[in-house]
Protein backbone atom coordinates (compact mmCIF):
# COMPACT_ATOMS: atom_id res chain seq x y z
CA UNK A 1 0.00 0.00 0.00
CA UNK A 2 1.26 3.43 -0.94
CA UNK A 3 0.29 6.44 1.12
CA UNK A 4 0.93 10.11 0.47
CA UNK A 5 0.73 12.56 3.35
CA UNK A 6 0.37 16.29 2.73
CA UNK A 7 2.18 18.22 5.44
CA UNK A 8 2.51 21.91 6.18
CA UNK A 9 5.18 23.80 8.03
CA UNK A 10 3.69 26.27 10.52
CA UNK A 11 4.91 28.51 13.35
CA UNK A 12 5.48 26.59 16.59
CA UNK A 13 2.37 26.60 18.80
CA UNK A 14 4.37 28.51 21.44
CA UNK A 15 5.49 31.18 18.97
CA UNK A 16 4.69 34.78 19.79
CA UNK A 17 2.98 36.35 16.80
CA UNK A 18 3.94 39.88 15.72
CA UNK A 19 2.50 41.74 12.75
CA UNK A 20 4.95 42.67 9.98
CA UNK A 21 5.48 46.29 9.03
CA UNK A 22 3.41 45.77 5.88
CA UNK A 23 0.47 44.91 8.10
CA UNK A 24 -0.80 41.98 6.05
CA UNK A 25 1.54 39.24 7.27
CA UNK A 26 3.30 38.16 10.43
CA UNK A 27 6.91 38.94 11.22
CA UNK A 28 8.64 35.76 10.02
CA UNK A 29 12.08 36.46 11.45
CA UNK A 30 12.92 34.61 14.62
CA UNK A 31 9.85 32.37 14.46
CA UNK A 32 10.47 28.69 15.08
CA UNK A 33 8.62 26.37 12.67
CA UNK A 34 7.27 22.87 13.13
CA UNK A 35 5.15 20.38 11.20
CA UNK A 36 1.54 21.20 11.96
CA UNK A 37 0.59 18.94 14.92
CA UNK A 38 -2.31 17.23 13.12
CA UNK A 39 -0.02 16.45 10.18
CA UNK A 40 2.16 14.55 12.65
CA UNK A 41 -0.83 12.35 13.46
CA UNK A 42 -1.37 11.81 9.73
CA UNK A 43 2.30 10.82 9.22
CA UNK A 44 2.08 8.38 12.12
CA UNK A 45 -1.12 6.88 10.70
CA UNK A 46 0.58 6.40 7.32
CA UNK A 47 3.66 4.75 8.84
CA UNK A 48 1.57 2.35 10.91
CA UNK A 49 -0.65 1.43 7.96
CA UNK A 50 2.30 0.75 5.66
CA UNK A 51 4.16 -1.18 8.38
CA UNK A 52 1.05 -3.25 9.00
CA UNK A 53 0.79 -4.00 5.29
CA UNK A 54 4.34 -5.31 5.30
CA UNK A 55 5.82 -2.22 3.74
CA UNK A 56 8.72 -1.96 6.13
CA UNK A 57 9.52 -3.78 9.33
CA UNK A 58 6.77 -5.72 11.01
CA UNK A 59 4.31 -3.51 12.80
CA UNK A 60 6.05 -3.82 16.13
CA UNK A 61 4.26 -1.08 18.00
CA UNK A 62 6.13 2.18 18.16
CA UNK A 63 9.47 0.73 17.01
CA UNK A 64 10.77 3.22 14.49
CA UNK A 65 10.36 2.20 10.91
CA UNK A 66 13.25 4.43 10.02
CA UNK A 67 15.75 1.59 10.01
CA UNK A 68 13.61 -0.56 7.79
CA UNK A 69 12.73 2.14 5.34
CA UNK A 70 15.43 1.22 2.90
CA UNK A 71 14.37 -2.40 2.94
CA UNK A 72 10.80 -1.63 1.99
CA UNK A 73 11.16 -3.88 -1.05
CA UNK A 74 8.67 -1.87 -3.05
CA UNK A 75 5.86 -3.23 -0.92
CA UNK A 76 4.59 0.04 0.35
CA UNK A 77 5.81 3.56 0.52
CA UNK A 78 5.02 6.71 2.45
CA UNK A 79 5.52 9.90 0.46
CA UNK A 80 5.40 13.36 2.00
CA UNK A 81 4.26 16.30 -0.10
CA UNK A 82 4.49 19.92 0.99
CA UNK A 83 3.82 23.23 -0.70
CA UNK A 84 5.99 25.82 0.98
CA UNK A 85 9.17 27.86 0.94
CA UNK A 86 12.68 26.41 0.60
CA UNK A 87 13.06 26.07 4.37
CA UNK A 88 10.26 23.46 4.37
CA UNK A 89 12.98 20.96 3.36
CA UNK A 90 14.02 20.82 7.04
CA UNK A 91 10.54 19.70 8.05
CA UNK A 92 10.43 17.15 5.23
CA UNK A 93 13.79 15.71 6.34
CA UNK A 94 12.36 15.44 9.83
CA UNK A 95 9.46 13.45 8.38
CA UNK A 96 11.85 11.21 6.45
CA UNK A 97 13.73 10.59 9.70
CA UNK A 98 10.51 9.25 11.20
CA UNK A 99 10.34 6.64 8.46
CA UNK A 100 8.71 8.18 5.40
CA UNK A 101 10.40 6.96 2.19
CA UNK A 102 10.46 10.00 -0.04
CA UNK A 103 9.39 13.62 -0.06
CA UNK A 104 8.36 16.22 -2.59
CA UNK A 105 8.63 19.96 -2.03
CA UNK A 106 6.52 22.20 -4.22
CA UNK A 107 8.37 25.45 -3.77
CA UNK A 108 6.15 28.50 -3.28
CA UNK A 109 4.32 30.62 -0.77
CA UNK A 110 0.95 29.21 0.30
CA UNK A 111 -1.56 31.83 1.39
CA UNK A 112 -4.92 31.89 3.13
CA UNK A 113 -6.76 30.47 0.12
CA UNK A 114 -7.04 26.72 0.70
CA UNK A 115 -8.61 26.27 -2.73
CA UNK A 116 -5.42 27.61 -4.31
CA UNK A 117 -3.33 25.30 -2.10
CA UNK A 118 -5.57 22.36 -2.99
CA UNK A 119 -5.01 22.93 -6.70
CA UNK A 120 -1.23 23.09 -6.22
CA UNK A 121 -1.24 19.84 -4.24
CA UNK A 122 -3.63 18.11 -6.64
CA UNK A 123 -1.32 18.93 -9.55
CA UNK A 124 1.29 16.74 -7.86
CA UNK A 125 -1.09 14.01 -6.67
CA UNK A 126 -3.02 13.63 -9.92
CA UNK A 127 -2.24 10.33 -11.61
CA UNK A 128 -0.14 9.20 -8.62
CA UNK A 129 -0.28 5.66 -7.26
CA UNK A 130 -1.30 6.48 -3.68
CA UNK A 131 -4.03 4.23 -2.31
CA UNK A 132 -4.61 6.77 0.43
CA UNK A 133 -3.85 10.47 0.59
CA UNK A 134 -3.78 11.71 4.18
CA UNK A 135 -4.09 15.24 5.53
CA UNK A 136 -4.20 16.79 8.97
CA UNK A 137 -7.70 17.92 9.82
CA UNK A 138 -6.34 21.45 9.96
CA UNK A 139 -3.13 23.42 9.67
CA UNK A 140 -2.79 25.42 12.88
CA UNK A 141 -1.71 28.66 11.18
CA UNK A 142 -4.54 29.68 8.84
CA UNK A 143 -6.79 27.11 10.45
CA UNK A 144 -9.08 26.83 7.44
CA UNK A 145 -9.85 23.13 7.78
CA UNK A 146 -10.54 22.67 4.11
CA UNK A 147 -7.57 21.58 1.98
CA UNK A 148 -8.11 17.81 2.41
CA UNK A 149 -11.72 17.59 1.19
CA UNK A 150 -10.97 20.10 -1.58
CA UNK A 151 -8.14 17.94 -2.91
CA UNK A 152 -10.46 14.91 -2.72
CA UNK A 153 -12.96 16.69 -4.96
CA UNK A 154 -10.23 17.60 -7.43
CA UNK A 155 -9.04 14.00 -7.56
CA UNK A 156 -12.60 12.65 -7.67
CA UNK A 157 -12.01 10.38 -4.67
CA UNK A 158 -14.19 9.67 -1.64
CA UNK A 159 -13.11 11.51 1.49
CA UNK A 160 -13.69 11.16 5.22
CA UNK A 161 -12.77 14.06 7.52
CA UNK A 162 -11.92 14.24 11.22
CA UNK A 163 -10.80 10.61 11.39
CA UNK A 164 -9.39 9.22 14.64
CA UNK A 165 -8.52 5.70 13.40
CA UNK A 166 -8.14 4.02 10.01
CA UNK A 167 -8.21 0.29 9.23
CA UNK A 168 -7.56 -0.92 5.70
CA UNK A 169 -8.76 -4.28 4.47
CA UNK A 170 -9.08 -5.42 0.90
CA UNK A 171 -9.43 -2.12 -0.89
CA UNK A 172 -11.66 -0.56 1.76
CA UNK A 173 -10.63 1.91 4.45
CA UNK A 174 -12.81 1.85 7.55
CA UNK A 175 -12.59 5.25 9.24
CA UNK A 176 -13.74 6.18 12.71
CA UNK A 177 -14.76 9.82 12.56
CA UNK A 178 -14.80 11.97 15.70
CA UNK A 179 -18.09 13.85 15.35
CA UNK A 180 -20.52 15.73 17.55
CA UNK A 181 -21.74 13.40 20.26
CA UNK A 182 -19.72 10.35 19.35
CA UNK A 183 -18.00 8.39 16.60
CA UNK A 184 -19.29 7.73 13.14
CA UNK A 185 -17.94 4.79 11.18
CA UNK A 186 -17.49 5.43 7.46
CA UNK A 187 -16.17 3.09 4.78
CA UNK A 188 -14.28 4.43 1.79
CA UNK A 189 -13.35 2.53 -1.36
CA UNK A 190 -9.66 3.01 -2.18
CA UNK A 191 -8.12 5.11 -3.54
CA UNK A 192 -9.42 7.62 -1.03
CA UNK A 193 -8.62 10.76 0.95
CA UNK A 194 -8.72 11.05 4.76
CA UNK A 195 -8.14 13.96 7.14
CA UNK A 196 -6.74 12.86 10.49
CA UNK A 197 -7.47 14.17 13.97
CA UNK A 198 -6.11 13.17 17.34
CA UNK A 199 -7.07 9.62 18.21
CA UNK A 200 -5.28 6.33 17.77
CA UNK A 201 -1.99 7.75 16.55
CA UNK A 202 0.75 8.86 18.92
CA UNK A 203 3.54 10.50 16.89
CA UNK A 204 6.88 8.70 17.28
CA UNK A 205 10.26 10.28 17.76
CA UNK A 206 13.03 9.97 15.20
CA UNK A 207 15.82 7.55 16.07
CA UNK A 208 19.43 8.50 15.48
CA UNK A 209 19.59 5.88 12.75
CA UNK A 210 16.43 7.32 11.22
CA UNK A 211 18.00 10.76 11.12
CA UNK A 212 21.14 9.37 9.43
CA UNK A 213 19.08 7.42 6.88
CA UNK A 214 16.92 10.46 6.11
CA UNK A 215 19.89 12.21 4.54
CA UNK A 216 20.01 9.63 1.78
CA UNK A 217 16.32 9.43 1.02
CA UNK A 218 15.00 11.19 -2.07
CA UNK A 219 13.70 14.71 -1.60
CA UNK A 220 12.46 16.08 -4.90
CA UNK A 221 12.12 19.82 -5.31
CA UNK A 222 9.96 21.51 -7.92
CA UNK A 223 8.52 24.91 -8.55
CA UNK A 224 4.83 24.99 -7.51
CA UNK A 225 2.51 25.80 -10.41
CA UNK A 226 1.12 29.33 -10.30
CA UNK A 227 -2.53 29.48 -9.27
CA UNK A 228 -4.51 32.62 -8.64
CA UNK A 229 -5.77 33.17 -5.09
CA UNK A 230 -9.35 34.34 -4.58
CA UNK A 231 -8.84 35.48 -1.01
CA UNK A 232 -6.84 38.62 -0.31
CA UNK A 233 -5.59 39.30 3.21
CA UNK A 234 -5.89 43.06 3.60
CA UNK A 235 -4.74 43.36 7.15
CA UNK A 236 -3.66 41.42 10.21
CA UNK A 237 -4.30 42.75 13.69
CA UNK A 238 -3.47 41.51 17.13
CA UNK A 239 -6.66 40.57 18.97
CA UNK A 240 -8.02 43.27 21.26
CA UNK A 241 -6.57 42.89 24.76
CA UNK A 242 -9.06 41.54 27.25
CA UNK A 243 -10.07 44.11 29.84
CA UNK A 244 -8.17 43.75 33.11
CA UNK A 245 -9.74 40.94 35.12
CA UNK A 246 -10.02 40.81 38.85
CA UNK A 247 -9.57 38.33 41.63
CA UNK A 248 -12.92 38.19 43.37
CA UNK A 249 -11.57 36.55 46.49
CA UNK A 250 -10.16 33.41 48.02
CA UNK A 251 -11.81 30.04 48.48
CA UNK A 252 -15.46 29.11 48.74
CA UNK A 253 -16.31 32.32 50.63
CA UNK A 254 -15.81 34.24 47.39
CA UNK A 255 -18.57 32.30 45.61
CA UNK A 256 -21.55 34.54 46.53
CA UNK A 257 -19.70 37.63 45.30
CA UNK A 258 -18.69 35.83 42.06
CA UNK A 259 -22.28 34.80 41.41
CA UNK A 260 -23.48 38.36 42.09
CA UNK A 261 -20.93 39.76 39.62
CA UNK A 262 -21.83 37.21 36.94
CA UNK A 263 -25.47 38.10 37.35
CA UNK A 264 -25.43 41.85 37.88
CA UNK A 265 -22.25 43.07 36.20
CA UNK A 266 -21.55 40.54 33.45
CA UNK A 267 -25.24 39.58 33.07
CA UNK A 268 -24.46 36.02 32.03
CA UNK A 269 -26.43 34.14 34.68
Amino acid sequence: MNITVCVKRVPDTEARIRISSGGADIERDGVKYVLSPYDEFAVEAALQLVEGAGGGQAAAGPAPLAGGAGTAAGDGRVTLVSFGPEATKESLRAGLALGAHRAVLLRGEPGMDGWATARVLASELEGGDADLVLFGIKAVDDDQQQVGPMVAELLGRPCATSVAAIDVDGGVATCRRAVEGGQEVVELDLPAVVTVTKGRYEPRYASLRGIMMAKRKPLVEKEAPAVEAGLVVERLDLPPARPEGRIVGEGAEAVPELVRLLREEAKVL
Binding site: V233, E234, L236, D237
Partner: peptide, 14 residues
Protein backbone atom coordinates in the same frame (compact mmCIF):
# COMPACT_ATOMS: atom_id res chain seq x y z
CA UNK B 1 -8.92 34.45 13.73
CA UNK B 2 -5.62 33.00 12.52
CA UNK B 3 -2.59 31.53 14.31
CA UNK B 4 -4.98 30.06 16.87
CA UNK B 5 -6.49 33.40 17.73
CA UNK B 6 -3.14 35.14 18.19
CA UNK B 7 -4.05 37.42 15.25
CA UNK B 8 -7.15 38.50 13.35
CA UNK B 9 -7.12 38.62 9.57
CA UNK B 10 -9.30 40.90 7.48
CA UNK B 11 -9.84 39.07 4.20
CA UNK B 12 -11.53 40.12 0.95
CA UNK B 13 -13.29 37.55 -1.20
CA UNK B 14 -12.82 38.04 -4.94
Amino acid sequence: PVFAGKALARVRVK
